[in-house]
């Protein structure tokens, strides 16, 4: 296997380089960091506060007692940060492709799955920083999961971030131009977020519309939300774990396929010269 010619240190160096570039770009785009935080905070401070009086919630696992709507909605908002971050990564990939930076990445001697995986992981690191910053602000809003929940949610954030990032990566291979990104907002982000358990529990959806419940139950984002929700309270939701891990494999496999020179995207592109 030709990939073995690189020592382990070289693989790490390549990963570190990709992560470093993503972090540099993130630091340079402070507006992106603020936007990523303001969005869920607006939902928490305004939307959730307003709905607290309207929406009553029965005791729903993993909660042991009645909880305020803000408490219920917080894991969904954390997942929302990761969803937007994943789509932002998708946007960044399309931008890189248009500016030519993607070629620099793809002509590296490291295998393509590793390069895409490193880029994916770098995006997840950024999303986790955003998620913890949001949880820290939410703590001051009296949303206080158990202290060890903050540690327990870390692997859940890694997995859900990878899954949503891989979805973004896969979508980026299908988006031809940056202008098409509005379509991603309308057809991916909003339906995924609203048709999930982020804002309401599935049993409540079922009461109003069994069809909507089924749609939400088929939405991978629902399982990312539940994985985070349970982990934040120190519990494991195995169904959510299985669905998120399976979708990660599916989306990442699709992205690697689409970026394969013999198949997907690059095989269909034609350039002048």
């Amino acid at each position: 296997m030709t990939e073995r010619r690189f020592p382990a240190r070289a693989w790490f160096t390549a990963f570190r380089g990709i992560a470093w570039r993503e972090t540099l770009r993130f630091v340079q785009q402070r507006g992106r960091f603020l936007a990523a935080l303001v969005r869920p905070l607006v939902w928490l401070f305004i939307f959730a506060a307003g709905f607290r009086a309207v929406l009553g919630l029965s005791i729903t696992p993993p909660y042991q007692t009645y909880v305020l709507y803000e408490v219920y909605v917080t894991p969904g908002l954390v997942a929302m940060i990761q969803l937007f971050n994943g789509m932002q990564s998708s946007l960044s990939m399309v931008h890189d492709r248009e500016t030519g930076a993607m070629r620099t990445l793809l002509v590296s001697p490291f295998p393509r799955w590793f390069l895409l995986g490193s880029k994916l992981m770098a995006g997840v690191i950024v999303s986790i920083i955003q998620a913890y910053t949001f949880l820290a602000i939410a703590w001051f809003w009296d949303i206080r999961p158990p202290a060890w929940g903050y540690a327990a949610v870390f692997p859940a954030l890694v997995l859900s971030g990878l899954m949503l990032g891989a979805l973004g990566l896969f979508l980026s291979s299908a988006i031809r131009q940056l202008e098409n990104f509005a379509g991603v907002m309308n057809f991916v982000i909003f339906p995924m977020f609203f048709a999930s358990s982020a804002l309401y529990p599935l049993w409540r959806m079922n009461e109003s519309s069994p069809l909507l419940h089924d749609i939400c139950a088929a939405n991978p984002f629902t399982y990312a939300v539940e994985l985070i929700r349970f982990a934040l309270y120190g519990e494991m939701n195995w169904l959510a774990f299985g669905v998120v891990a399976g979708c990660l494999a599916l989306f990442f496999g699709g992205a690697v396929f689409m970026y394969d020179p013999a198949k997907g995207l690059w095989a269909r592109r034609k350039e002048r010269g």
């Binding site: 690189f6 380089g17 470093w20 620099t104 390069l115």
Partner: peptide, 8 residues
């Protein structure tokens, strides 16, 4: 530096 890292 980014390119150097991409070559390990």
């Amino acid at each position: 530096a980014y390119h150097a890292a991409l070559h390990g």
